[in-house]
């Protein structure tokens, strides 16, 4: 499964069409020349932004935290080595820490942008009743998601906003594929219970 992860990274590399070097080669080069980090930034900025946005739920915080993720990655690029952990996984771990610190420092729970979700659903569905049902469901889901523990939110974000496989998520979260599968089912169960508990 990890080869698939690597394959997706290689595909991204190819799509950029700017630099043929792999993430690992660029990261090692960035140790000597920080300007090379700019290529890694351009390659991964959208992916990491999407992940952070999913975790914080609004553009303003997502932009701030996304910038911090790359700042921290550049600062610690000397520590990166590719012993079985792809650069992307390393970046996701940094992103997770930055988001977790943000929630802890601000003493607030992860939140989701309900307004954004509402407007999105209205555009997608012409039938007014159906749109209202969906908005209610999405609102309940958003509230339930915000009440999940950090690691379960991380798992859902990686699985749905990044569409990663269990093995890939396992590398990022330092768990086996089986443990991720099990955690995923427990998370869905908890989400369902949280949604049902809402009025």
């Amino acid at each position: 499964m990890l080869s698939q992860y690597q394959a997706s990274t290689d595909a991204e590399d190819g799509e950029s069409g700017v630099d043929p070097r792999s993430d690992k080669e660029l990261a090692l080069a960035a140790r000597e020349d920080p300007a090379v980090f700019g290529i890694l930034y351009e390659r991964h900025v959208s992916t990491i932004y999407r992940y952070v946005y999913y975790r914080v739920g609004n553009r303003e915080d997502a932009e701030d935290l996304n910038a911090r993720v790359f700042m921290r990655a550049l600062k610690h690029i000397q520590r990166f080595d590719d012993r079985g952990v792809p650069f992307t996984a390393w970046l996701y771990r940094i992103a997770h820490n930055v988001v977790a610190n943000f929630h802890r420092d601000n003493g607030r729970h992860p939140q989701v942008s309900l307004e954004d979700m509402t407007s999105r659903e209205v555009h997608h569905h012409d039938d007014a009743d159906h749109a209202i049902d969906l908005r209610l469901d999405q609102r309940r889901l958003a509230l339930a998601f915000a009440r999940l523990p950090e690691e379960r939110q991380q798992l859902i974000a990686l699985k749905f906003s990044q569409q990663l496989q269990n093995a890939e998520i396992g590398v990022i979260m330092r768990r086996s594929e089986g443990a991720i599968k099990s955690l995923y089912h427990r998370t869905l169960e908890q989400l369902r219970e949280l949604m049902e508990a809402q009025p």
Partner: peptide
């Protein structure tokens, strides 16, 4: 299915991407 809809694609603003790259470097 609801979680998949919940994870709608978002993208950073192009000007943000450029400004942040400069600021990070």
């Amino acid at each position: 299915r609801a979680l998949a809809e919940f994870a709608h694609p978002v993208a950073p603003r192009p000007e943000y991407v450029a400004e942040t790259k400069t600021a990070v470097l």
